[in-house]
Amino acid sequence: MLLIRCPYCGERAEVEFSNGGEAHIDRPADPMSLSAEEWAQFLYMRDNPKGLIAERWRHAHGCNRFFNAIRDTRTDRFVVTYEIGQPRPDVTPEQAAEAAR
């Protein structure tokens, strides 16, 4: 069971959380101005990287806040968790290597 650091509550067991898919996909301000292709892109297209992904988590059985995390999909190792609204943090090569280990 993963150990996940909620930015508000600290480290908690995975059972308290639910995963919310890829992060940093903003809902368009004016969806009706988008073409069908653009809308489909927003709605359906997601990355599935082998390696680091920025993804949303929700501390569903805790403070109930959404937050973002950078995780290596190969190792399930988290680099960092951060509040919604913050930009995706830079990951140093050392951090990336540690997460990939």
Binding site: C9, R12, V15, E16, H61, G62, C63, N64
Partner: peptide, 10 residues
Amino acid sequence: ATRTLFGKAD
């Protein structure tokens, strides 16, 4: 104080 999960109960 915190909310958490007890078995299948919040």
